[in-house]
């Protein structure tokens, strides 16, 4: 046969820390594609609204928040209409929270497959982060519609948006890597997830402004990368000055957290099948 193409692979007991094999991951891009396709199709199968849910879900949340925090609690928003203020934050937040929870549970959800077939284990937590981008893309329509309604003209700040979309993907990726690795040990990750996500929502300026946090705590506050994502989205969409002091610390945490999460994941990967 074609001896030239033949690859020789060696299987050994794993030792020490390992890095992620990006090339191997790339070889599985077709699998990524079909897994994402499966998730999307399975999610909207037999629903009347189908993709309409990707719009309806965040829209309802925006409405509720506008009523509770905008009209009833009258939370100050630096002069921005509350509906607009909440929209630009809730859309990325919905993406982050749903993909974070799916990614964190991905190894538990996929445990049947884990023991039966090999593909890079990293695919499990990465897939939801990609799948949910479709919903996110659709829900961007809400942002467009709301901005048109409030006649917010796009500014040059909009050019920063891709950076924040990237950062927005990094947050659930980081959380997913850590949570899925931990979920092998602790099954209560599953139960804690919803609770933690609700807490996280209040840890970021989604229903309130970042400026309402006292200056002395600002640095600690902005170590949370969700803060940076939300602030970044607001600034680039609404044409506000870029609050780098809220963004940079989170970005650094995010990068360190992702690398750490990947290393930890690779380490736990070895025992996943044996203990799950």
């Amino acid at each position: 046969m074609n001896a030239g193409k033949e690859q020789v692979s060696i299987i050994r007991p794993p030792r020490g820390w390992e890095l992620i094999n990006l090339r191997e991951l790339l070889e599985y891009r077709d699998l990524f594609y079909f897994l994402v396709w499966k998730d999307i199709k399975a999610m909207y199968a037999q629903t009347i609204l189908g993709f309409g849910w990707a719009i309806l879900q965040p829209l309802i949340q925006i409405l509720i928040f506008t009523i509770i925090f905008g009209k009833v609690a009258k939370i100050p928003t630096d002069g921005i209409p509350y509906f607009l203020f909440a929209t630009v934050a809730i859309i990325p937040w919905t993406y982050m929270s749903t993909s974070m929870s799916l990614s964190g549970l991905s190894l538990i959800t996929g445990q049947n497959m884990l023991g039966k077939v090999y593909f890079p284990r990293l695919i499990y937590p990465v897939t939801p982060v990609l799948t949910k981008l479709v919903d996110f893309g659709i829900s961007l329509l809400i942002i467009v519609a709301v901005m048109v309604y409030y006649q917010v003209a796009p500014t040059m700040q909009l050019l920063y948006l891709p950076l924040f979309i990237l950062m927005m993907m990094c947050v659930p990726m980081m959380a997913g890597l850590w949570l899925s690795s931990l979920s092998i040990r602790f099954r209560d990750v599953r139960f804690a997830m919803q609770f933690v996500i609700r807490m996280l929502m209040y840890s970021a300026p989604i229903v309130y402004t970042a400026s309402s946090i006292p200056e002395t705590y600002r640095f600690f506050y902005s170590l949370n990368p969700i803060v940076g994502v939300i602030e970044g989205f607001r600034a680039s969409l609404l044409g506000l000055p870029m609050p780098w002091e809220y963004i940079v610390p989170g970005l650094v945490v995010c990068i360190i957290g992702m690398v750490g999460g990947a290393l930890y994941f690779k380490r736990m990967e070895r025992v996943i099948v044996d203990v799950i």
Binding site: I10, R12, G115
Partner: peptide, 17 residues
């Protein structure tokens, strides 16, 4: 499972071409 990389061996080495 070891041959198909689903679980790693605790000892030894496998060469696959």
């Amino acid at each position: 499972k070891i041959l198909s990389r689903i679980t790693p061996p605790s000892r030894g080495e496998i060469m696959i071409r």
